[in-house]
Simulated assay, not measured.
Amino acid sequence: MKDIAQLSGINVYPVKSTSGIAQSRAWVGLEGISFDRRFVVTDLAGRMVTARKYPKMVTIKSTLLSDGIVLQAPGMTRLHLSVNDFQRDEFECKIWSDRFLAYTTTEQANAWFSQAIGSDVQLLYCGEESNRYREKLDTRVSFADGYPLLVISQGSLDELNRRASSPQSMAQFRTNLVIDGVDAFAEDSWEKIAIGEVEFRVGKPCQRCVLTSVNPNTGEKMAAQEPTVTLSKFRANEKGAIFFGMNLIALNEGVIELGDKLKILETRTPTIYPDTHN
């Protein structure tokens, strides 16, 4: 018998593609959790730069301050950014196919990230309210890939690790919310859920990319092409795309806290993936 279904992890990623911060309590707005993906690194044309191309980005760490953020990278002097110092010039940003106006930060930040990544880049800020409105979701989204939040159950990771050739961590999947006390891939069947003060609509399954194979502590590739090799054997569709976790859209604003019970308000028929694992 499973334990009571509850929230066991909350994570935010202040700068897209960099290290996350675990939280015990968080404010969920309609754009997602406060401070999540509020910054993005782009090239000089405004196209996002991520750890898919520069895997060492995952080793850049953020610490939140009342007036901004402190950034640290291996072998570099830490960078203290105050929101009050931002230039805030409008700059068109491109996240996948979405184009929208973001805001410049500082020349110091641009230089710091350019050195950390080894390419000419800039740091952009989405502002107090993102200008990126996604019509099909009917909500604003920060610099996240497509949806405001992502949820994965601990049971799903446990099942992956039961099959995988080496242990994989939840940090590789960069999820916002972790749910304990449910069966593996129970999240596939959720349509609408409530956690703490917030109700969520469950969106599409999250298609996974090469970034899951980057060790979040070192920025190096995981051994034996994990977890892609294992996920492709039991979480892939007919086109070979692999899925792990479910995207979420908050229907209201409020506080969530570790230990909050999960309430399943509506369910759906889950996608069935062929299991070719031997």
Rank of each mutant, 00 (worst) to 15 (best):
E128K: 15
V49E: 03
N252S: 06
F113Y: 01
M76S: 06
T42C: 09
W190I: 05
K239I: 01
R47M: 02
S165L: 14
A5D: 00
V178S: 10
D36F: 03
T228G: 02
E238Q: 14
G254M: 09
P205S: 07
V121S: 05
S169G: 05
A109V: 03
I21W: 04
I152Y: 10
E128P: 02
E253V: 04
R99I: 07
N84G: 06
D89Q: 14
R208V: 03
L101K: 15
K261L: 09
I256V: 11
I117L: 03
E31M: 07
D145C: 10
V49K: 11
E90I: 08
K16F: 00
M246E: 10
F100Q: 06
V70F: 04
R163Y: 01
T218L: 13
L65K: 11
L81N: 07
D145H: 13
S213V: 08
R38Q: 13
L211G: 05
N11Q: 08
I256P: 03
R25G: 04
E90C: 09
M246N: 05
D36L: 01
V15S: 03
L64K: 09
A45G: 13
Q225K: 15
P270A: 12
V214I: 15
A186S: 10
R134K: 14
Q72Y: 07
L44G: 00
R174H: 06
N252D: 05
V70K: 12
I21A: 01
L149S: 02
C206S: 10
A111R: 08
G68F: 03
E31H: 11
S17F: 14
S114G: 03
G240P: 02
R88N: 11
A164K: 14
S8I: 02
C206E: 07
S8T: 12
S232M: 04
L71W: 00
R78S: 08
F35Q: 12
G219V: 12
I264T: 15
V214N: 11
N217Q: 14
D183T: 12
A26P: 00
S169E: 05
I10T: 04
A111M: 01
T267I: 07
G245Q: 00
G196T: 06
L177W: 10
G127W: 10
Y147R: 06
Q154T: 15
K239L: 01
G68W: 06
T218H: 14
N215S: 13
E199F: 06
P205K: 11
T276Y: 11
K239T: 05
V49R: 12
R37L: 01
I264M: 03
N252H: 09
I69Y: 09
A236T: 02
R132E: 02
